[in-house]
Write a protein that binds this DNA or RNA. Structure first.
Lengths: 386, 386
DNA sequence: GATTATTATTTCGATATCGAAATATGTCAA
DNA sequence: TTGACATATTTCGATATCGAAATAATAATC
């Protein structure tokens, strides 16, 4: 059945544009096939969208039998989308054109103990900053940490920014900039970034795993972002892990988040273990860890491996449950040159029973620091209608 | 986007009938609201379906303000669906009328070491047996153990029936009985039974947990059965569990399946632990265990509690990932009078972080032994089109 | 008892979509 | 070069759906 309330009329024109975004360079007939719609109907809408300047006819009629298809493509000039990503320390902004190519980006530091209102001001500033004056603004997406209610456009709670509670963020920005504003949790925004900009374009079921200060995940199931009925889907920070052998069980975040890894490294360095790491303000920094990993530092490799085993165990469990085609790992750890990824893959593969599960492709996000901002833009892209 | 290939045109008339099945006693306007369709359009289709004898106008115009709605209901006489469920020991069959009320059921034992062909013969016999001669047969559903390819209607593999490999089951039965045949894994069929007959009618996201010889689960997400891209979703038998303290990790099935529990009970009884249980052919039977649980036998309660803790841990993890509204537990264990359910609930609740998860309702299936057969019938109901 | 308010359903013209046939545009082989 | 063939797109009449207004049926109120 159609799932009642939630589902809104799936406007054909926006489906057409979305399909082109995913496949880029499709013919009318191919669109008709993908969307289960009559070719004549597709023709009507494509023509209209071309007239309106959103699409245009591409060049290369490739060589096969029969009349060559007219490839349709996005018109980059048709407008722009802006995405904002933030945490307690930084605000990232990016603008992309209608064909989803990056136009501008900007990163601004947030001074510690900044208030919610102060952060909002910075967000507005960054939006103005990355906005391309020559293009029509079509939508804004915001990726925020903590809990959100996307449908109402409210940021519900985030403990690391003072006063960040029940903010009607979407409404405020909508009034300010006069365009639709989409709001989402930032790990789910990352999953959207992968769908519209990254490796999730042609995969309909995948899990995006974000390992930063905390650990969270975003899911795309059947081609759509899955939020869960209470908006908690993917909040795996508290995933019970097997601790070495203690009676108390630890959570995934306590075992494998960046924070946890750095804490353990700091402890080990202080204890005088063999390593090339040095302390800075009495702590190990992320950059130091990444650099050491690059140089095969034994201590760092060991810590990364332990984290990978814990994460791998959890990922194996998730794979048993939802059977994803792909796992996309995002976060600084992506740059550790297989010190994390290899043991992760091994652990997963080792735990999956051959006949009742399929090993998912495990890859690293290629979108870099802007992944959150791009994801936010992706939200706006996804929500846009002609 | 619409998820391309998989999605077929969602025929309005079948959506209407399905919505009525879920809500029973709905007006035209309410249907229009639920399905996001114009009331006038709903009217056209309802009238047509009434003409064709599938639906009929109900009686009771309840009392509120305004013109009272005309409640639409299913016409039980419109036909029947048949569902078959099987494992290596038994074949269950059930027929239901168009309003989903049970007509007949039959259970046949399969002699051990029966061949696939023999089981097929029994299936055909049971179908003929539960078929109501006075009603038009509209569809058949088959719930089989092991791996399946529902789209192709093939039973792929099941180790406990000789020769049960790559059987084109749907095709064969379709030829034999001349109606559409739906095939599915039997735990997923149970999830469908809950959706169409049981407690999943008004819940769009839930997990159905089957604890029998093995352990498996079926998921309904966003109102639809979720199979996963490789058809492995929910195959959680191999879920890594924390074993007491050993180095090797055990699987959920090795810790909490009926088979595992009985094995452990048998061992304990032989070791002379205090219990009212007695051995039968040198083993503890399921019925003996259930009876002892009813009488608060301490050994049985302990074993059930340990299993519940293991399952609860896994369910908590699953809840973190997919955020279901409800967990439905099916299997003989459902009759153990909270000896299993209470510690299960406690374990889950204890592991869920208050701000990032919502405790799902944990209930027991009320459909009894026929749950699989009803689920199979539900598959046929779900697949049916006017 | 008549009137008003309220919700459900039907009516009916405008628009959207479909589906089959016609047309367009290429390759390939004789 | 010409004539099959294959595939893409458009044309056009039939059908489906929408949306607003009209109509129907009841409770509440005067």
């Amino acid at each position: 059945m159609r799932s009642s309330k939630k589902m809104m009329k799936p406007n054909i024109e926006s489906s057409v544009v979305q399909q082109i975004r995913l496949l880029q360079g499709v013919s009318r007939v191919e669109l008709a096939r993908q969307l289960s719609i009559a070719p004549s109907t597709v023709g009507i809408h494509v023509d209209r969208l071309v007239d309106q300047g959103y699409l245009r006819n591409g060049e290369r009629p490739e060589s096969t039998a029969g009349r060559p298809p007219t490839l349709i493509e996005l018109n980059p000039e048709a407008g722009q989308f802006i995405g904002i990503d933030l945490d307690s320390r930084q605000v990232y902004g990016a603008s992309v054109d209608f064909a989803q190519r990056l136009l501008r980006d900007r990163t601004v530091s947030v001074k510690s103990n900044e208030s919610a209102e102060g952060v909002l001001k910075i967000i507005e500033e960054v939006i103005n900053d990355v906005k391309d004056r020559s293009r029509n603004l079509l939508g804004i997406g915001i990726a925020v940490p903590g809990t959100v209610d996307g449908a109402k456009g409210m940021a519900l709670h985030y403990r690391y920014i003072r006063g960040w509670q029940n903010l009607p963020l979407a409404e405020r920005l909508q009034d300010r900039f006069g365009v639709p504003v989409s709001l989402e949790n930032n790990i789910r925004a990352m999953a959207m970034a992968e769908r519209w900009f990254g490796q999730g374009k042609t995969v309909d079921d995948y899990l995006c795993l974000g390992i930063r200060s905390g650990i969270g995940s975003g899911m795309v199931l059947g081609g759509e972002l899955f939020r869960g009925p209470h908006n908690f889907a993917g909040e795996i920070g508290a995933w019970p892990c097997r601790s070495a052998c203690g009676t108390e069980s630890k959570t995934l975040e306590e075992v494998a988040s960046l924070r946890a890894m750095l804490r353990q490294l700091t402890k080990s360095v202080r204890a005088g273990n063999a390593t090339s790491l040095t302390l800075r303000r009495n702590r190990v920094t992320i950059d130091a860890m990444l650099a050491a990993a690059e140089e095969n530092d034994p201590l760092v490799k060991k810590v990364l491996r332990e984290a990978a085993v814990a994460v791998g165990r959890a990922v194996a469990q998730m794979t048993l449950l939802i059977d994803p085609e792909m796992i996309i790992v995002a976060g600084p750890i992506a740059n550790t040159n297989d010190a994390f990824l290899a043991p992760l893959r091994d652990t997963i593969e080792h735990l999956l029973p051959p006949m009742h599960a399929q090993m998912p492709k495990v890859v690293v996000s290629e979108l870099g620091d802007l992944v959150g901002a791009l994801g936010a833009a992706a939200l706006a892209v996804h929500a846009w209608q002609p």
